[in-house]
């Protein structure tokens, strides 16, 4: 078997564009997911029964549907509901963010409920409001405690961004498909794409592990 990496070298800008989209898509869906997860997790824990069940329903529904189904629904079906079309990229961010948000919501809720009630009492006893207590005392500890699962979710978000290729977001996998079809060198191109994903995901996972080993003790009340 002969290996020919010239298609990679000749089309490096094309691949770089894909990488750019992958990073942007991941970053924005993580940002959206984190925003949803923070609000959802806090409201589910401290917002009373009604909010708890409403947010719980969102979480459970999203957790039982494949990302692929959420992506195609958001991109193809949702525009018919709102009467407004979406670009593949914004559809991708929306779908991946809403999907990730459910998992982050659950993770943050688990973190918040794991902090023992005495911490809230101590904060209230100082005269803090519940909101201040959650923001300055409970949430930081919960986030530190939940760093490992949150880190896995970040890695999963990067990997899931590749599924947005099915709605033609020009991210790394999509660009690779186009290139592989054009050059007939699937081995070189898909292998290169695989390596690029690995070089993003693996160090990210390790870095989060390392940070947690340093910070972990600060979340242990």
């Amino acid at each position: 078997m002969d290996i020919d990496i010239s298609p990679l070298i000749e089309n490096w800008q094309f691949i770089l564009t894909g990488l750019g989209f992958t990073l942007a898509l991941s970053a924005l869906s993580i940002a959206l997911g984190a925003a949803i997860g923070l609000v959802g997790g806090v409201l589910r824990t401290y917002g009373g029964k009604l909010l708890d069940s409403a947010i719980g329903l969102y979480v459970d529904v999203v957790r039982s549907i494949p990302v692929l189904a959420i992506l195609v629904w958001t991109y193809f079906a949702f525009p018919l509901v709102i009467g407004e079309s979406l670009t593949p990229f914004s559809g991708g961010v929306l779908a991946l963010g809403v999907h990730l948000g459910a998992y982050i919501t659950e993770t943050i809720r688990a973190g918040l409920t794991s902090i023992r009630p005495g911490q809230m009492r101590a904060a209230l006893a100082l005269g803090m409001s519940r909101f201040e207590a959650i923001r300055t005392i409970i949430l930081p500890q919960a986030l530190i405690r939940m760093l490992p699962p949150l880190g896995s979710l970040i890695v999963i978000a990067v990997k899931d961004s590749a599924i947005a290729s099915v709605i033609a977001v020009p991210e790394l996998l999509r660009q690779s498909q186009v290139l592989a079809g054009k050059t007939f060198r699937p081995f070189e191109i898909y292998t290169a794409a695989m390596l690029i994903y690995f070089l993003i995901c693996y160090p990210t996972a390790r870095t989060i592990d390392r940070v947690y080993r340093r910070l972990g003790v600060l979340g242990a009340s």
């Binding site: 005495g118 911490q119 009492r121 101590a122 904060a123 209230l124 006893a125 100082l126 005269g127 803090m128 409001s129 005392i137 930081p140 500890q141 530190i144 003790v217 600060l218 979340g219 242990a220 009340s221």
Partner: peptide, 20 residues
Amino acid sequence: ARKLRRRMGMVFQNFELFPH
């Protein structure tokens, strides 16, 4: 209640220091 709690300091059996 918050104004009032400022006037009363509380010390707990398990310290409840903020670990972070």
